[in-house]
Amino acid sequence: MTPARPTAPIRPPRRVAVIGLGLIGGSLTRDLAAREIHVLGYDRDSATLRSAREAGHLRTALDASLKGLRDVDVVVLAVPVTAAPAVMEAALPHLSSTALITDVGSTKRAIVEAAERLEVAERFVGSHPLAGDHLSGWAASRSGLFHGARTYLCPTLHTTEETARLAEWLWTTVGAAPEWLSAAEHDRRLAWTSHLPQITATALALALDSAGITRADLGPGGRDTTRLAASSAEMWTAIARENRDNIAEAVAALEHRLRRFREALQGAETAEIHLHFLEGAAWAGR
């Protein structure tokens, strides 16, 4: 189900809460505060919470009870994908007046299922701004991160039109470009476009390490190719676990290509080797 494109204007929410003030949550906090929206926030790291307050971007700091979520219009769960369902459940007693509950994770099936199970499906839309980085934490967050960024919006089977309008408002307000698709299609697509590149960079880094090669030994191309290997292990372990079926399929396809390449090299098959490079260059040029 994809909600119809919003046609009627909405009254902008006055109070938005962001749970988790890392790269995505912190950047969203900065951008919303710059637009004079009252931002409430919580992070399990007290130093991060203090930094956000001292920087002037966070109007209200929440404590671990999340009781301060009462009277909040929008709640954004900016926590690891495996933690998001539990955080949503913990916040649930305080969300009776919340019009939109959303997340920012890189997988969507589990959180959409959790929204259905917790009976907040009408008020839930899964969000995924494609604005990630190998850096993480509040220190990596920055204003303008979402400008022009494609942001996938994944409804539940019961998402209301009002909730859909609020989700689009949230992301267009910070300059993102929303695109609707189902949770299942999101996870299938991201396995190829995001998760496979990450796993490839990590595997390449480990292969280089086994050969005694450090990142300092690489040229610009090698450093670009392995940049993602520096990404958060905690975050990517959660993503890989959540989307393991789709990722395994993508990894199998990569293994097939690598096996063919190895066989061509072992057989000194010049034409086949050239074809691999030729086809790769053709894809990159499209």
Rank of each mutant, 00 (worst) to 15 (best):
A131L: 02
E113L: 12
E116C: 02
T151K: 13
G126C: 02
W138M: 11
L166S: 01
T151Y: 13
T173W: 10
T173R: 09
V174H: 00
L145A: 13
Y152N: 03
W138Q: 09
G144V: 15
A176E: 02
A115L: 09
R117N: 11
R142Y: 08
T151P: 08
S106K: 10
F124N: 00
H158R: 15
E122S: 12
L153F: 03
G132S: 03
E179F: 12
A177E: 15
E122K: 04
T159D: 04
L166E: 00
A114T: 05
E122G: 04
P129I: 00
W171T: 06
C154R: 00
A115H: 06
L130A: 12
R165Q: 15
W138S: 14
R150H: 01
C154H: 06
F124D: 01
T172G: 09
L153A: 02
E113A: 15
W180N: 11
A139N: 13
L181D: 02
F124P: 01
Y152H: 14
S127R: 06
F124M: 13
A176I: 09
K108M: 07
V112N: 04
L135C: 03
S136D: 13
L181G: 04
L130N: 05
V174D: 00
L157T: 08
T172R: 14
P129V: 08
L135G: 01
Y152V: 13
S127Y: 01
G175H: 05
A149K: 10
T160A: 04
D133A: 12
V125L: 04
T107I: 05
T160G: 03
H147P: 00
P129G: 05
G175A: 06
E168Y: 05
R109Q: 15
P178G: 11
L181Q: 13
S182L: 05
E113Q: 14
F124L: 04
A149I: 07
A114F: 01
E119S: 12
F124T: 06
R117G: 05
L118F: 07
R142Q: 13
R123I: 10
G137R: 11
G126L: 04
F124W: 10
T107E: 10
T159P: 05
A139L: 15
T172Q: 14
